[in-house]
Amino acid sequence: MSKEWPLWEVFIRGQHGLSHRHVGSLHAPDAAMAVHHARDVYTRRNEGVSIWVVEAKHITASAPGEKGPLFEPSNSKVYRHPTFYDIPEEVGHM
């Protein structure tokens, strides 16, 4: 029984200078092959101009159970959004 290829997560930067975005995952024996496969699997239609791959085991994810403590505190901080402030129309665009 041969060794299973490790799993890699794939990130692609689109045409218009945006950040790399997670697009999916794939199996590959090493990083160079992972980039190669990512080219074939995730950019068949000009989806990107740059590829990042990272072995899935190196990603640390937040736990679903921590959702409350992690994200709820920002719910009440509405003053962090520009729409919180009323600026008179006469002032013009701000």
Binding site: S2, K3, W5, P29, D30, M33
Partner: peptide
């Protein structure tokens, strides 16, 4: 295709 898969793993292991 087994020899290709195994060859690539052998290469990856050697490089590592």
């Amino acid at each position: 295709g087994a020899w290709v898969r195994e060859g690539l793993v052998a290469h990856a292991d050697k490089m590592a």
